[in-house]
Amino acid sequence: MSQQRSDNRSTRKVTLFPQRDKTVLQQLEDQGFQIPYQCREGYCGACRMTLISGRIEEVGDPIAFCGANDILACSCKVVVDATVEFWD
């Protein structure tokens, strides 16, 4: 599913397409990425990553802290092709 992968130190950018039944975390795991996680329901913040472009929608009721461009991969789905960046 990834269109673009670029290495910048040890961060990675991956573009994801809308998939109604999968969270961003699940999509990335399907692609073989090891994303840190703990609660998988939006309260620990372990899977926090940056949204570079595109649109996502929140699912559940995440309460972990999120900065301006941050998303919680376990608690969102892609709405419009979205590029996310994370430490790999």
């Binding site: 961060t11 996680y37 703990q38 609660c39 790999d88």
Partner: peptide
């Protein structure tokens, strides 16, 4: 919002995530 101190290394204990979940 801070920069990594140690180059953001990978988790050397991958089984931790499964225990923590």
């Amino acid at each position: 919002g801070q920069q990594p101190l140690f180059g953001a290394p990978k988790n050397p204990l991958p089984w931790m995530d499964a225990w923590l979940q």
